[in-house]
């Protein structure tokens, strides 16, 4: 027995002696290195934030709750919610249209999505804001027939209506694709069963297909909501008093550009984080019964 090398583990051949529960974690040097690098980077960035006087943190703090900034934030939120609501409703209709068995409708909805996904929202905003050039008066009447009333376009298209129209048309196209993907993800057997129970096409869509599609729709729709919120900052180019425009008005007067951009960033961050939390709750709600 003494011929066994002394470095051999004690009782390596005895199976009852081993219990992996007693194992100690392995040391992983690369992880420690990555951790150290991360720590240095964070410290460096924090140092930069704190020591660079040009951030003018006190100025940022002073404007954070400035009434004009809060009004801008309110406008941003209102615009986001209006556009998202309109975009979601129209998006569902458009998605249903694209999946319609009636070819011309499906085709028209497909063309809409292609066109409005292709045009940058900024271009659309400027276009709608200048609609008055193309169409001086907005008529209401029988197509190709008599006009009952008409309004001067420039009094109808304010920066708010231009923003709502432009962003909604854009948003609708994206929501339609998200909803369509969700609908297609629902097993065909569910629709079969709904029809077999005697549900009408609408009942089976509203009661059975759409609720199950929500599980697939919510995550990308949440991202869409967030990117829309940030996308509303585009409306500052048509002089609409959103969050970005409000801080721009202030820094054009005071030249405190950086601290005021920080104010805007802080609010965007706060809103987006709360939205993400809401999204997670929605996902849990619609995920129940699945897996």
């Amino acid at each position: 027995m003494s011929v066994a090398p002394p470095t051999m583990a004690p009782q390596a051949g005895a199976p009852q002696a081993v219990d992996v529960a007693a194992a100690r974690p392995r040391i992983r040097p690369l992880r420690w290195a990555a951790g150290a690098v991360l720590l240095v980077l964070v410290a460096q960035f924090a140092w930069f934030l704190v020591t660079n006087p040009r951030f003018e943190w006190p100025v940022a703090g002073r404007y954070l709750f400035d009434p004009n900034v809060l009004r801008g934030l309110g406008m941003t939120l209102v615009l986001t919610v209006i556009v998202m609501l309109l975009g979601s409703v129209l998006g569902v209709l458009l998605a249903a249209g694209r999946l319609s068995g009636f070819r011309p409708v499906a085709w028209a909805c497909g063309v809409y999505v292609t066109v409005f996904r292709s045009i940058p929202p900024l271009v659309q905003l400027i276009f709608w804001f200048n609609l008055g050039y193309l169409l001086p008066r907005i008529p209401l009447g029988i197509p190709f027939g008599p006009t009952f009333v008409s309004w001067p376009t420039n009094s109808v298209i304010s920066s708010l209506t231009a923003a709502v129209i432009g962003l909604t048309l854009h948003e609708t196209a994206y929501m339609a694709e998200i909803v369509r993907a969700g609908i297609l993800a629902v097993d065909g057997g569910q629709r079969d069963a709904a029809r077999a129970m005697g549900f009408t096409a609408r009942q089976s869509f509203v009661k059975v297909v759409l609720p199950q599609a929500m599980r697939v729709i919510v995550p990308p729709a949440g991202s869409e909501f967030i990117s829309l919120l940030k996308g509303t900052s585009l409306v500052s180019v048509i002089a609409m008093a959103d969050l970005l425009y409000s801080v721009q008005v202030i820094y054009n007067r005071t030249y405190e550009i950086v601290p005021l951009l920080i104010v805007a960033c802080a609010w965007y961050l706060v809103v987006v984080i709360s939205l993400s939390m809401g999204q997670r709750r929605l996902e849990r709600h619609f995920g129940k019964g699945q897996r």
Binding site: D187, G189, Q190, D192, A193, A194, R195, A196, M197, G198, V208, P211, Q212, K288, G289, Q290
Partner: peptide
Amino acid sequence: RGRMGMVFQQFNLFAHW
């Protein structure tokens, strides 16, 4: 359809209810 009952190979119970 409502006057007939159908049972499918894949059950097709409404998964969200």
